[in-house]
Amino acid sequence: MVAAAALAETVTLPAAGAALDIEQVSHAFDIDGAQLPVLSDVSISVEPGEFVALLGPSGCGKSTLLRLVAGLDKPKAGTLREDESRITRPHPSRVVVFQDPTLFPWRSVWDNVALGLEAQGILKSQRQRVDDALDLVGLASFRNAYPHQLSGGMAQRVALARALVNDPKILILDEPLGKLDSLTRITMQAEIVALWQRKGFTTLLVTHDAEEALVLANRVIVFSDRPARVKADIRVDRPYPRHRGDPYLADLRRQILSLLGLDATW
């Protein structure tokens, strides 16, 4: 076990997924001195390379959980582990793609994608990785454009390339397609699945769209209202590419929506 881990360290294998363990994590916000609980005793264990969707009512604390996984915030209780090592601060092995692309407007597309390598001080020797990442999302010809010249979908693709250039072991997607039009969203869902299959990273996707969760993920975790607790952990055993009209998925979707209290309307 130890030897295998050491081997994986020395030989730079293509980034494969890492395991993620969320153990009895609780979190609360301080608002004017009062404690507002947002996560209550959440435990999730994610296998390396799994694609897990986190689904729940808006404002239930899913995004907070992602910030804890990314290491941007520290939980009030419980621990998070990436491959046995405790998560205490951000690390480029866990990269977040936010709902807003948050590209740096003063940097060209290429420089935005290069951000991670530059921050880690390895850009000079690895410029090729930036070009590769841009090729991966099909935006090589926009390398010199500035963010204000891009459409919403293109900007989000650049954000994806900026994350992927670091070869993350865990890719954290915080409603990355939430603000895109429905056509672009469907295209990019297929692209995300293709990238995940090719690279093998573990993926954590926050979404409020049950269909999106079912088309993309092999596990859907449904959260309760705030403070978020795990309400259901559903395995989606269907091959890719998945069809939106698949009766099996439609059935799961109905179950999920009823868990979210929407059975009467659907």
Partner: peptide, 18 residues
Amino acid sequence: VSNAYYDVARTLGAKPSF
């Protein structure tokens, strides 16, 4: 400066000087 920029940079491995 929006905190989102700092969040992005931090998850990409940026140090305070960066």
